[in-house]
């Protein structure tokens, strides 16, 4: 075994100090070494330890997609994975896709198409859509809908979201008509 990060605190009796170990993550191009307990989710590591609060906690059970980030370019739910599982992985969050002065094409399209109301699901929607672009498998409206189905929007901004994603997919010449 390559590493044994911690020992568990005793169940019952005196509370043991929370055991942590160093976990090295490359977040938005910056190498960060965080002191984490093994049960810290990647989502909590990003929000509470790396202080990148763009990634949102919705259901915390992999059902809503609000926590979607890119790990080595692939979209996953950061709530259902442990930070310790991602030693030396490249993590991209919404903060890494663009800046207020220099929006990514997807971010600009979401603004242009009014693709949100409250905005809580939006970072996950955009990271998911970026994953969809990276995968290159959405070639029609129906396929964009299917491949964005892991992201729920409580405000029901789906029409705008679809239009925004469709515009960027089309701009890359990947739509089939």
């Amino acid at each position: 075994m390559s590493q044994l990060l911690t020992s568990a605190p005793h169940r019952g009796g005196l509370p043991a100090p929370v055991p942590t170990g160093p976990v090295r993550l490359h977040i938005n191009g910056e190498t960060r070494t965080l002191q984490l307990a093994p049960w810290t989710s990647l989502l909590d590591a990003l929000r509470e330890y790396a202080h990148l609060t763009g990634t949102k906690k919705g259901c915390d059970h992999g059902q809503c997609g609000a926590c979607t980030v890119l790990v080595n370019g692939r979209r996953i739910n950061s709530c259902l994975t442990l930070a310790v599982m991602h030693e030396d992985d490249d993590i991209t969050t919404i903060e890494g896709l663009g800046t207020p002065d220099n929006l990514s094409p997807l971010q600009q399209a979401f603004v242009d198409h009014d693709a949100f109301q409250c905005g809580y699901c939006t970072p996950g929607q955009i990271c998911s859509a970026q994953g969809l672009l990276n995968e290159g498998r959405a070639h029609s409206e129906a396929e964009i809908k299917e491949l964005m189905s892991g992201n729920l929007c409580r405000c029901g901004a789906y029409t705008g979201i679809l239009n925004a994603v469709q515009e960027v997919v089309a701009a890359q010449g990947e739509m089939v008509k």
Binding site: M1, S2, Q3, L4, L5, T6, S7, A8, P9, R11, P19, A37, P38, W39, L82, V84, E87
Partner: peptide
């Protein structure tokens, strides 16, 4: 979630032994 310890296996035999 209850606390737990964690390790990363290097090969199959290591995983089986560790578990």
């Amino acid at each position: 979630m209850y606390p737990f310890t964690y390790s990363r296996a290097t090969d199959v035999a290591d995983a089986v032994r560790d578990k």
